[in-house]
């Protein structure tokens, strides 16, 4: 039951950390802060898993702690969390590597500036005017160009007619 005891307070803390981390991941505009929010949500998840195996009055599941036969907390969630902590650091390192590549390619980590630059790059590669497809109404958007040399059907080139799709 919810009351003023250890497991209730830890449960509130775990849920709070998960909520704050998830909200931060959604609400931020900067990729580095998104990574930090992921770290927080991960910490909350680890705390929740350890809390599942907690037993009131139990001793630590270590040989020699307490008298033999005493009630102990469940060691299985602790082992899982032990693995999850190390994996979490690996995920952080991978995310940092991706951030470095993004920063080297685009020079920013802000999501809005990043989207603009990626749109400009895609538009330049496709040979259309930049920023033509994001804000324009549906009829005014340019059709995606067909790369030269791509053939489909019986050796024809050009855009695929809509009526010829297989039913």
């Amino acid at each position: 039951m919810i009351g003023f005891n250890l497991e209730s307070i830890a449960l509130i803390g775990a849920l709070g950390l998960i909520v704050i981390g998830a909200l931060g991941m959604v609400a931020t505009n900067h990729l580095m802060r998104m990574l930090l929010a992921l770290v927080i949500a991960e910490a909350g998840g680890n705390l929740l898993i350890v809390l599942v195996g907690y037993r009131v009055g139990g001793v630590a599941p270590i040989l020699g702690v307490g008298e033999p036969g005493a009630a102990m907390v469940d060691p299985i969630p602790q082992v899982l969390v032990l693995t999850a902590i190390v994996i979490g650091v690996g995920v952080q390192a991978l995310a940092v590597a991706l951030l470095l590549r993004i920063h080297r390619a685009y020079g920013t980590l802000d999501l809005r500036a990043l989207r603009d630059r990626m749109d400009a790059e895609v538009a330049a590669a496709a040979g259309v005017a930049p920023d033509a497809s994001q804000e324009a109404p549906l009829g005014a958007r340019p059709l995606p160009p067909v790369p030269v040399g791509v053939t489909h059907g019986a050796g024809r080139t050009g855009p695929l007619p809509a009526l010829e799709r297989r039913a």
Partner: peptide, 29 residues
């Protein structure tokens, strides 16, 4: 919560190594 081994790992890896990785990332970025 009676999990001293997890606490050791969290202190060394979660708080220590993770902080170092993030701080080095800040320098590079």
């Amino acid at each position: 919560l009676q999990a001293p081994d997890v606490a050791m790992t969290e202190a060394a890896v979660g708080a220590g190594l993770s902080g170092v990785i993030l701080a080095l990332a800040l320098r590079r970025l």
